[in-house]
Design a protein around this nucleic acid. Structure first.
Lengths: 338, 338
DNA sequence: CTGTTAGCGCCTTCAA
DNA sequence: TTGAAGGCGCTAACAG
C-alpha cells in the first residue's frame, strides 16, 4: 500500500474527487453526505493512510479527544503516577498526551502554567497537573491537580497526607532510639515540602527534642541538588545518626553520599525517604520510606478529570489519601553508645 | 499579575501597539526589530503571561523543539523506558511529548503509524517509537525504534537479545530439574514474541525434550488477554511444573491464576517472566525474570535520536543489548516425584 | 447532498 | 525597522 505519511485532507479530496469539506464531514461523521460518496472517501483515506493532523484540527475545533498530563520531567515519581492515570483513562475514548515542560536543569517555577498555555485551548481537552507549583491561574479547560506543591483551592486536587506521613517516619526513627535526627528538606517554597518539614518538627517536639537548625538542610527534591547539603549534614564530627529525606530520590542520594564518606547504612546511619517510588525498593540498600499510594492517586485524579468532562463533576473537590510506613533495610536501631 | 491563559499573539500585538509580525519576530529572535520595540514587546508578553500555541506554531514552522515518544499505552514497560528517555533528553534543549495512541483495549496493529501521522510534520521534530508493530513506513522526521516488534531495517533500532534471553530463562528452569515446561507466548505476529518462543524451543531442543504443542498458549503480552490461556495451561491433570511467560505482566497474571486454582508458587509451580519491570520485584511473589536493561535502552534510543537531529548520525544503526537472568522467588527446584 | 468561504494562531515573504 | 498579506491543515457556517 502506498503509505504516504504526509497526506493531507486536500490530497484525499483530490484523490476522491470531492471537496475538502466533504472529506471533513466524512471524517467527523457529520450528516449531509451520501453513503456512496462517504464510502469512496473512506476507501481513499485507507489507501493513502491519511490521518488528520492533531495540530491543525485542534486549531479549529475545540474538542480534540486528547487529555494532557503535564509533568516537569519524566522521573520515577511522575511516571508512577502516569501508570495510574493511564489505567483510569483506559477505554474511556480519550488519548493521552504526557508533556514534560521543564526545559533546564534548574527548578523552574510555574512550568505548568507555560505548558498549559502552550497546549490548552488547542491540543488538549483537559489536563492533570502533576506537582504544580503555582496557583490561582485562570484555567480554560478542566484541570485536576495531583500532589500540588502550592495550595490552590480553585481546582480539584488529589494528594496524600504529607504531614502525618512525615510524623510517622520521624516517630519511627525515634522509636528506634535515634535522637539526633536530621532533615534533608525539600524546597522551602513548596507546600508539600513545608508540610513534611512541619511533620518532622512536630514529631521531635512531641518527643521533647529541641530543633537543631543546623540539622535541617535544603535538598530540593532532586538528586543533583541534594548532594552538597547531604554532605554538609554528614561530613561533620557531630553528625546525626539518622536522616529523614523529603523524598526517595534525595534519600537514595544521601545513602550514596554516606557511603562515599565511609559510612555504612543502616549500621552507621539510618535513612528514611518519602514517596515509595519503585526505585526505593530496588536500590542496593532497599529504602525504608513513607509510601504514597502513587498509582492510586494517579487513577483517582484521572477519574476526577473524566467526571469533570462528563459534567458529573467530582464528588469531592479535594481528596487526601493516607500515607504509610514501609520498613526496609535503610534503618536500624541506634546501637548503645560505647 | 493578570494571568490570562488564553492570550494570543494578537493580544500581545495590540497591547504593545505593534503588528503581529513584529511580535513574532521578537519571539523568534529574528533580525529587524529595534531594541526599544523588542523590549516593550517582551514586557507585554511577560505581563500577559503569553505563550505561543504549540498547535498553531507547528502548523507554520517545521521546527517545534519538541520530541515525541510514541507508546501504545502507559504501562510499566513503556514508563520504565520513558525514564531513560527523559534522562537522556535532559538539558538538550528539547521538550518531550509522550503520546499514548492505542485507543481501545484490543491490540491495534499499526497504532504508531497513526500517531506518527497525527503528530509528525507538525507537532514534533523527531520521535522514539516504543514497540512499533509495523515496518516500512516512509517517515518524514528522524525516528528511532525502541524494542520493535517487527523488523524494520530502514530505521535505527535499539533492542535487547530476546532469543538469548529466552534460552537463558528456560535453561535455568531445566537446571532446576523441570522437564514439563509451558510457554505463555506473546503475539505470534510480533517479532520479539517469535524470538522468545524460538528461544524456548531451542532450550528444550538442546535438552532433548520434545515440544508439546499443547503446552504453548498465546498470552498476548497483556494481563487481560493472558488469563484464559494461563488457566488453560494450569487447569488440567497433566499440568506443567513450570511456565515461561513472554513478559512480566503475563507472568504475574499466571501466578494469580495459579493461586486461584490453589497452586502455590514456587512450591507447586515455577514461573519466570521477561522484561524485569519494577512491578516484577514488587509483586507479592517477587518474580524471577529475564531482565532487559530498560532504562539504558531508553537512554540510548534518545541519544540516537539526538544524534540524528544533530546530523552526526548514530554510529550504529542497530544496537542489541544483553539480557540477564534475575532470580527471585517465583522459581524453585522441582521436588522429587513421590 | 455538495462546495465555497472564512477563519483558528502563527510565521514568512515582501513592500513600504 | 515595520506591517500587510498569504497560507499551514483543518472545521464550521452558509450557499447552492
Amino acid at each position: 500500500m502506498p503509505v504516504q505519511l504526509n497526506a493531507t485532507i486536500v490530497d484525499v479530496a483530490r484523490s476522491a474527487g470531492v471537496s475538502v469539506s466533504t472529506v471533513s464531514k466524512v471524517i467527523n461523521a457529520r450528516y449531509g453526505v451520501s453513503e456512496r460518496t462517504a464510502e469512496r472517501v473512506r476507501r481513499v483515506i485507507a489507501e493513502l493512510g491519511y490521518e488528520s493532523s492533531l495540530g491543525a484540527r485542534s486549531l479549529r475545533s475545540q474538542r480534540t479527544g486528547v487529555l494532557g498530563v503535564l509533568v516537569a520531567e519524566f522521573e520515577p515519581f511522575s511516571t508512577e503516577l502516569l501508570k495510574g492515570i493511564g489505567q483510569a483513562a483506559e477505554g474511556r475514548g480519550y488519548e493521552l498526551l504526557a508533556y514534560a515542560g521543564r526545559t533546564g536543569p534548574q527548578p523552574q517555577l510555574g512550568w505548568e502554567r507555560r505548558s498549559l498555555a502552550r497546549l490548552s485551548g488547542t491540543l488538549i481537552d483537559g489536563a492533570v497537573l502533576v506537582t504544580p507549583t503555582v496557583s490561582g491561574a485562570d484555567y480554560r479547560i478542566p484541570v485536576v491537580a495531583l500532589d500540588p506543591h502550592a495550595d490552590d483551592s480553585s481546582i480539584p486536587t488529589v494528594d496524600s497526607d504529607n504531614l502525618a506521613g512525615a510524623e510517622l517516619g520521624v516517630s519511627y526513627l525515634l522509636r528506634l532510639g535515634h535522637r539526633r535526627i536530621a532533615m534533608l528538606a525539600g524546597r522551602p517554597d513548596l507546600n508539600s515540602a513545608q508540610l513534611r518539614e512541619q511533620g518532622y518538627r512536630n514529631a521531635l517536639g512531641a518527643a521533647g527534642i529541641p530543633i537543631d537548625p543546623s540539622l535541617i538542610q535544603v535538598g530540593g527534591f532532586r538528586p543533583d541538588s541534594a548532594t552538597a547539603p547531604a554532605r554538609a549534614l554528614l561530613d561533620r564530627p557531630d553528625r546525626p545518626t539518622a536522616v529523614f529525606a523529603a523524598n526517595d530520590l534525595t534519600a537514595i542520594r544521601t545513602i550514596e553520599v554516606a557511603n562515599e564518606l565511609g559510612l555504612r547504612v543502616p549500621e552507621d546511619l539510618s535513612v528514611i525517604g518519602f514517596d515509595d517510588v519503585p526505585d526505593a525498593s530496588q536500590f542496593r540498600t532497599p529504602l525504608t520510606t513513607i509510601a504514597q499510594p502513587l498509582y492510586e492517586m494517579g487513577r483517582i485524579a484521572m477519574e476526577m478529570l473524566l467526571q469533570l468532562l462528563d459534567g458529573t463533576g467530582p464528588a469531592q473537590p479535594r481528596l487526601t489519601l493516607a500515607t504509610s510506613l514501609v520498613v526496609r533495610e535503610s534503618t536500624a536501631p541506634l546501637p548503645p553508645t560505647p
